[in-house]
Structure formats: structure tokens, C-alpha cells
């Protein structure tokens, strides 16, 4: 069912050292992870372990200091090219949301194709209206992001990303600020979008239930420096809905994840105590 997915991300032996004022911080060390085309890969790990750093490297917001990252057969960054070029094939949905507050929701959604010069303004708006209607966002087109609730804002942002027909969606704890009810609605909305688009999803979260419910695989990261400690296959078939949450298999997987994450969290905690 997922054979015709879009872009595969290959992360090979990536290192990242921040050098803030002479105090080097090794955020990522020898991290390798294959994300298959069209899969939802969830990234969990202790706070401050370097998940965002990894995502930013894939998106091209900063450089890496070793290894390489590939999108299908194209090297995004690696030897000789430390920083990837951000582009519409890998669109990020930010933790705190980054809809432009000075543009209406419709202008936000239409932004990508217009600046890329792929569509005229009118055509982009037409398509934006269509996509927004499909995502249940009709009626919010002419509001500004500051005027709608945070759940709706997040949906607009995802639609803005999809307008570019990306190969990969990079989500950095996109639903963290939402209450649990809105969150569950967002999960279903995201899955619905995913079933239609087969876009590859790289999704960082702290919420283990969210990780197992959405993901085909869950990569549990070690405490800093970050690399996968364990990659868990979630063998619950898609399409999924909320009944999955009460299934036996779900609970088993949950147990396994909790165990692995807890171990790392304790390590991170102790490391933190030593630093202090």
C-alpha cells in the first residue's frame, strides 16, 4: 500500500558539533537512520538530546560537521557541502507554528507556489482555496492567523506545506501546544492527509502514545549526543483509527517504548545533574 511513497531520507553517520563561544557541544554523533519513502517515522528521545538539531540539518537550517544526508539519490549535505539548501521538497511544520501573521490564511497557503514562480497568484489562490476546503478550513481564508484557534492554525500550516507537493514533511512537535482533544482530531486529520498523499513524514514528538499511534516505525534516540538507540516496528496495519489505542498490541508496544525511553531519560537526567 505504501509502495508508491515519495521521498526516502537516508541519514549516514551524521555528526553535529555546535561551537558556541568556544564551548563545543556534540549534539549528534554517528547517527544513521533510513527513512523509507512514504513512511511515517516518529522520533522520540529525551529533552535536549538533539532531535531538533537533526531535523534542522535535514531541512537545511544549519550545517552538519560530518556524515551525509540524502533525499532519494540526491545528496542534501555531506562532504564538500556542509549545509543543505532549504526547499519545497522538504517542508517543515514548526513547533510553535510559523504562519506569517501579516498574511491572511489564504495568502499563507498560496505563498509557496507563488514565490517559487510555479503558479500565478490567482491560480495559487484557487488551488489554496480547494485544499483548504478539503481540509475543512473553508471560511477561515480571509482571517489572519492571529484570529483563529491554535488547532486550526496548525491545520492551515500543514495545508500550506502540502500546497508544494513536498516529498517529505518534517514536523517538530507540531501538536505539543494543543490540548488532548484537539490533538486527537489533528492526528486523524494528519492520517487522512497522509493516506491521500503518501508523503514521507519525519515526526518528532515527546508523546509516546502519539508516536505509536501514528508511526510505522518509532526511532528512540539516545541522550545527547543523539543517535538511534532502537528502531521499533509498529506492526499495526494502516489505516488506523482510535480503536487501536485500546488494542493489546498497542499496549505491548507502548510498554516496550516506555521502557527504552525511560532508560535514556534517566541517563539524561543523571548527566544533567553531573553538569550542574
Amino acid at each position: 500500500m505504501l509502495a508508491n511513497g515519495k521521498g526516502a531520507i537516508r541519514i549516514e553517520h551524521v555528526d553535529k558539533v555546535y561551537d558556541a563561544a568556544g564551548a563545543p557541544v556534540q549534539a549528534i554523533s554517528d547517527c544513521s537512520l533510513d527513512i523509507r519513502a512514504g513512511e511515517i517515522c516518529m522520533i522520540v528521545g529525551p529533552s535536549g538530546c538533539g532531535k531538533t538539531t537533526l531535523l534542522n540539518a535535514v531541512a537545511g537550517f544549519h550545517d552538519i560537521t560530518g556524515g551525509s544526508i540524502w533525499l532519494d539519490d540526491e545528496m542534501l549535505c555531506g562532504p564538500g557541502k556542509p549545509q543543505a539548501q532549504p526547499g519545497p521538497d522538504r517542508v517543515v511544520v514548526f513547533q510553535n507554528g510559523a504562519l506569517f501573521p501579516w498574511k491572511t490564511n489564504l495568502e499563507n497557503v498560496a505563498f509557496g507556489p507563488v514565490v517559487q514562480g510555479r503558479m500565478s497568484k490567482a491560480a495559487a489562490r484557487e488551488k489554496a482555496r480547494e485544499l483548504m476546503a478539503m481540509a475543512g478550513l473553508s471560511g477561515t481564508e480571509n482571517s489572519y492567523p492571529g484570529e483563529i484557534s491554535s488547532g486550526v492554525r496548525r491545520r492551515v500550516e500543514i495545508v500550506r506545506a502540502l500546497m508544494n507537493d513536498p516529498k517529505v514533511l518534517l514536523l517538530d512537535e507540531p501538536f505539543r501546544a494543543l490540548d488532548s482533544l484537539t490533538k486527537s482530531v489533528m492526528h486523524e486529520a494528519l492520517l487522512e492527509i497522509y493516506y491521500k498523499n503518501k508523503v514521507t513524514i519525519f515526526f518528532i514528538t515527546h508523546d509516546l502514545e502519539e508516536a505509536i499511534f501514528l508511526g510505522q516505525r518509532v526511532a528512540i534516540m539516545t541522550t545527547r549526543p543523539c543517535k538511534p538507540k532502537k528502531v521499533l516496528d509498529v506492526d499495526i496495519p494502516h489505516p488506523r483509527d482510535y480503536s487501536v489505542l485500546t488494542s493489546r498490541r498497542f499496549r505491548e508496544l507502548m510498554e516496550e517504548t516506555v521502557h527504552a525511553v525511560h532508560e535514556e531519560a534517566v541517563k539524561a537526567f543523571e548527566a544533567g545533574e553531573k553538569e550542574m
Binding site: P86, G87, P88, V92, A98, F100, F111, V115, Q116, N164
Partner: peptide
């Protein structure tokens, strides 16, 4: 960053 992602120069 978001604008760069969306392909803005």
C-alpha cells in the same frame, strides 16, 4: 526559515 522551506529566495 519557513519562507525558505517554501522556496522563497
Amino acid at each position: 526559515r519557513a519562507a525558505a522551506c517554501l522556496g522563497a529566495s
